[in-house]
């Protein structure tokens, strides 16, 4: 871990301003991803701004019936929140499928959205990785790639986004509220938060340097049956091979998002009108431009079979 200076921010505006004018500054909240990567020097911030005292840990109902979730709400608290359990069960389920009890107590809502990939080549600094060292090459291509992405991939990167929570947030059309370095607030639809790798896999989000997520808002509840199905080799405490988040209405209409298949939460709205037509058609629409490797080609069939199971379950 490289040396850094540390401060505990007392005000939001101050934190954002400091981040903007301090080269190499990063915010730290839960730390579960950042501290890990700093030990490996995958992350090398020169200054850490601890934002845990900023009071961004409230969950409030909005006048429109939606929910405003503070950026620092811990994963445990978000999953246990009674509104979330009742009206956004898919979010609760997704959170509870992720990590471990300990990590959910530490990890925050915003931090979870900004998790970096778990690609082993990203973690091993001896190996080329375009995400870690732009231009060095992608080791996962032609390497061990069972966990890797099958849609939205590029010749530069086939990493996946590891979050479960983000899949549910994408399904729910969440909006990310941020404060920019100039102190202004902006809203980013979650669909626009995460980027595909293209030829700049090191740029993962549409946030500006120093821009801080302050909250995530959810539109009013959608009703329907909420399902989050995470498929993994071991029964718990493992990243998804794939996951399916779905909300299915009584008439079979609904929406679906996939985890473990792309560099970002994967949702194809245009394909969703096919939901009543079953898993095969739906899969074709969701994964129409899939590019698989030898190791992860199974994910296409796995998505189809899991979708079939989820749609069956929704029928009750």
């Amino acid at each position: 871990m490289r040396g850094f200076t540390y401060e505990r921010a007392n005000s939001l505006a101050e934190a954002v301003a400091t981040a903007a004018h301090t080269k190499g500054a990063k915010f730290i909240a839960g730390g579960t991803n950042l501290v890990d990567l700093m030990k490996l020097q995958v992350e090398t911030p020169t200054h850490l701004i601890d934002i845990n005292d900023l009071g961004l840990d409230k969950i409030e109902t909005k006048p429109d019936g939606g929910l405003r979730i503070g950026a620092l709400v811990r994963n445990t608290d978000l999953a246990a929140n009674e509104h979330v359990r009742r009206d956004y069960a898919v979010l609760s389920r997704a959170l509870l499928a992720g990590a471990s009890g300990q990590l959910r107590n530490q990890a925050t809502t915003a931090g979870n959205l900004l998790q970096r990939t778990r690609c082993p080549y990203f973690y091993d600094t001896n190996l080329p990785c375009n995400k870690r060292e732009p231009g060095s090459g992608c080791s996962a291509l032609g390497g061990y790639s069972r966990q890797h992405a099958i849609v939205g991939v590029s010749d530069s990167c086939i990493a996946t986004h590891p979050s479960d929570m983000a899949i549910a947030m994408r399904l729910l059309d969440a909006t990310v509220e941020t404060m920019r370095p100039n102190g202004l607030i902006r809203s980013i639809p979650i669909a626009q938060l995460h980027r595909l790798p293209e030829n700049t896999p090191h740029i993962e989000y549409t946030l500006e340097p120093g821009e801080l997520i302050t909250a995530v808002t959810l539109p009013k509840p959608l009703g329907g049956t909420h399902i989050y199905r995470k498929v993994r080799d071991r029964a718990s405490y493992a990243f998804a091979l794939i996951s399916v988040a779905a909300i299915v209405q009584r008439d079979g209409a609904g929406r679906v998002a996939l985890g473990g298949v792309a560099h970002k939460p994967w949702r194809v709205e245009a394909a969703e009108h096919d939901m009543p037509r079953g898993a095969k058609v739906l899969t074709a629409g969701l994964l129409s431009n899939a590019r698989t490797t030898h190791d992860n080609a199974f994910k296409v069939l796995l998505v189809e079979r899991t979708l079939a199971s989820v749609l069956n379950e929704a029928k009750g």
Partner: peptide, 28 residues
């Protein structure tokens, strides 16, 4: 679940930590 995965180009076990090399947990 257990298998050290070989990168046959570089010649090493890729999944060299306890997240990549899965061993059984309580729930298993």
């Amino acid at each position: 679940m257990e298998g050290l995965e070989v990168d046959k180009r570089y010649g090493f076990f890729v999944n060299h930590d306890l997240a990549g090399y899965e061993v059984p947990v309580h729930a298993d």
